[in-house]
Simulated assay, not measured.
Amino acid sequence: MPSDTNPYGGVFGGWLMGQMALGAGALASRVGKGRAVVVSATDFAFPGAMAVGDELSVYCEVAATGRTSLTVAAEGIARERNGEATTKVCSGTFKFVLLDDDNKPRAVAEAALTAND
């Protein structure tokens, strides 16, 4: 939407970061089998421009696993509104911590055990 643009008319980087965080969070929750909260975000790059009306696809993969954390790499690809041309417009890394019902960190292994039930 126009309210999501920078002063030059391109899509604001903060909006792109938010969309990547949503995609990364969905993957972390699915892999972690429960609540996952973002604790850091790093390595952002915006190699291409995205125009209002373009379609954004966010692709994510688990890049690393810690004792209670998952690191997710995300990238955004824009497809022009009325065509098939695509451009990589953003990338970044998010770290998530898995939480139990008491909002305490829980081991990633516990999530894997739940997946086998």
Rank of each mutant, 00 (worst) to 15 (best):
V89K: 12
L99E: 02
F46H: 06
Q19P: 00
K33V: 02
K104T: 11
G76A: 15
D100C: 02
D100T: 06
V37S: 03
L16S: 07
V97N: 02
A63F: 05
P47L: 05
T114E: 10
D54F: 10
D100P: 00
F12L: 08
A51Q: 15
E80F: 00
G66D: 05
D101F: 01
P7Y: 11
D54P: 03
A78D: 01
E84Y: 07
D102S: 11
A107Y: 12
G14W: 09
A78I: 08
R67C: 01
V72W: 01
P2Y: 12
A49K: 11
L22H: 11
L99S: 02
E75V: 03
A78H: 05
D117F: 03
E84A: 10
G14H: 09
R106G: 03
I77M: 14
K104M: 13
Y8R: 13
L27S: 04
N6H: 06
C60A: 12
V108C: 06
A115H: 09
F44M: 08
A41C: 10
L113G: 00
K95D: 02
V37Q: 04
G25P: 01
V37W: 03
L99I: 07
V97C: 01
T65K: 13
L16V: 10
C90Y: 03
K88H: 11
G10Q: 15
Y59K: 14
A51S: 14
V37Y: 01
P105C: 06
